[in-house]
Write a protein that binds this DNA or RNA. Structure first.
Lengths: 102, 102
DNA sequence: TCCCTAATTAGGAGAACTGCTAATTACAAG
DNA sequence: CTTGTAATTAGCAGTTCTCCTAATTAGGGA
């Protein structure tokens, strides 16, 4: 959960995710879409991978990254949990604690 | 959008948001719920405020923070946009660009 | 084997983040 | 005005993030 939101907190990483909506892309194709060095993009891809947001698949020389919807849904679940209960004092039942930050 | 996800990326800030689901709370009451100094919590509240996730209201000496659902919904909209279009190659229509990171 | 392309890892500089203590502001009440 | 409580701002140390260039790994083809 922690790495998930941290991964989402950088504009370049969010844009990479948006690119992958249409389907898997090679690392190089992603890097080419940005005005940054390829190693920097690799770093962002690693952050996304660690968060479970993407997964790499090797195909010969190229490595293609696929978007993992389930991770996106996990983040969404957290937000729905909060948006669901308004700021009214008569909230129904706050649900389970669901997170216990150290 | 940027500050929004950045605000959500810290466990303490997410827990503060979760606390506010039930209704507004005073700064001191929030600080008391954590094992950290009050000024540190003030810092987190400022981050949440800048992201539009909470808004402060003064009432005498105390300052109460209220959760702003609309900001939560904004973040949710971004995620739905992505989860909506799967990783299938025949995606319908990627929607508007909606974000153009520098 | 040797070379080329695809991609990652290593290492480091500079900025941003996160926590603290001390000092300050804001309000209420005597 | 002075005192006390609520809360923020100021300033600083240590850590993490973000970007770069240089070096390295991995695979495909001559």
């Amino acid at each position: 959960m922690n790495t998930l939101f941290k991964a989402l907190s950088h504009p370049v990483r969010r844009r990479i995710i948006a690119m992958l909506r249409a389907g898997p892309l090679a690392s190089g194709d992603i890097a080419a879409a940005f005005d940054m060095s390829w190693p920097t993009i690799t770093g962002h891809l690693n952050a996304l991978k660690e968060a479970g947001l993407v997964s790499p698949e090797r195909d010969g020389q190229t490595i293609r990254y696929r978007l993992e919807i389930s991770a996106v849904e996990e983040a969404m679940a957290f937000l729905m949990d909060i948006a669901g209960a308004g700021s009214r004092a008569d909230a129904p039942a706050p649900l389970k604690p669901q997170e216990t930050p150290k």
